[in-house]
């Protein structure tokens, strides 16, 4: 039997965003759904994005470093 794959994966890209693949339910703290694009989604982890919670590549112009 093949091992079951998780329905969602989150990959930490070096010096970059967290990329979420799979059917994910993004919510605000109030429980409101956050609309997002189809396909994989990149979440900001440098804090500089203008479209948080999504990544807009601004980290590339900062000294943000993370494995």
């Amino acid at each position: 039997m093949p091992q079951a794959r998780p329905s969602v994966t989150i990959t930490a890209y070096p010096d970059g965003p967290l990329v979420v693949r799979g059917d994910v339910d993004l919510r605000t703290v109030d429980g409101e759904p956050i609309p997002h694009r189809d396909g994989p989604v990149a979440l900001c982890r440098c804090g500089l994005s203008r479209i948080k919670p999504f990544c807009d590549s601004t980290h590339k112009r900062s000294s943000f470093r993370a494995d």
Binding site: Y13, P14, G16, P17, V19, R37, G39, P40, V41, A42, I51, F54, C55, D56, S57
Partner: peptide
């Protein structure tokens, strides 16, 4: 606007 978001994902996949 779609490309701001999509290509922030694609560049990671493309590079790594």
């Amino acid at each position: 606007a779609e490309h701001v978001e999509a290509d922030a994902v694609h560049e990671q996949i493309a590079a790594h």
